[in-house]
């Protein structure tokens, strides 16, 4: 029973790789390509948040009865990342490479420590309380 852990961890990896691509175009100050790489990274992040916040977290909360528990912490970290993504987009628009790279570094740190918590704790708990593949297929249909 690890459908959620597997598919969502793979999605983290996809986001990581898109992040690396976006960051390297920014560090080369290649703003034309950078715009595209950054948009696909941001889109991947938004999609991932949506899958969790609209499908998995509510399912987890109703299965466990915990609404103020771990999902709440994860939501607040999503919020922190969303803010960084907004700032990052603005910095890229203004072609401010230093600011954008600083934001990238900060974003990567919070993404990664967030991913550890999800992959090693929350997803595993979710796999236990939400067996079967409905949640995964519902998330993938978003």
């Amino acid at each position: 029973m690890s459908a959620i852990t597997e598919s969502m961890s793979a999605d983290h990896k996809r986001c990581d790789e898109l992040f690396a691509a976006a960051e390297s175009t920014i560090s080369e100050e290649n703003w034309e390509m950078g715009g595209e790489a950054l948009s696909s990274f941001i889109a991947a992040m938004q999609h991932h948040f949506k899958m969790e916040e609209e499908v998995m977290f509510p399912a987890f909360e109703s299965a466990t009865g915990m609404t103020m528990g771990p999902t709440q912490v994860m939501r607040s970290e999503h919020e922190q990342m969303r803010e960084l993504l907004v700032d990052l987009e603005a910095a890229a628009r203004e072609k401010d490479a230093d600011e954008a790279l600083g934001l990238c570094e900060t974003l990567l740190m919070i993404m990664q420590q967030h991913n550890v918590k999800e992959e090693q704790m929350l997803y595993r708990m979710a796999d236990e309380v939400l067996p079967g593949s409905e949640v995964v297929s519902e998330m993938q249909s978003i």
Partner: peptide, 12 residues
């Protein structure tokens, strides 16, 4: 079964 009550994803 994981014991959810003892698991805090609380911040540092």
């Amino acid at each position: 079964m994981l014991n959810s009550a003892t698991l805090s994803l609380e911040q540092a």
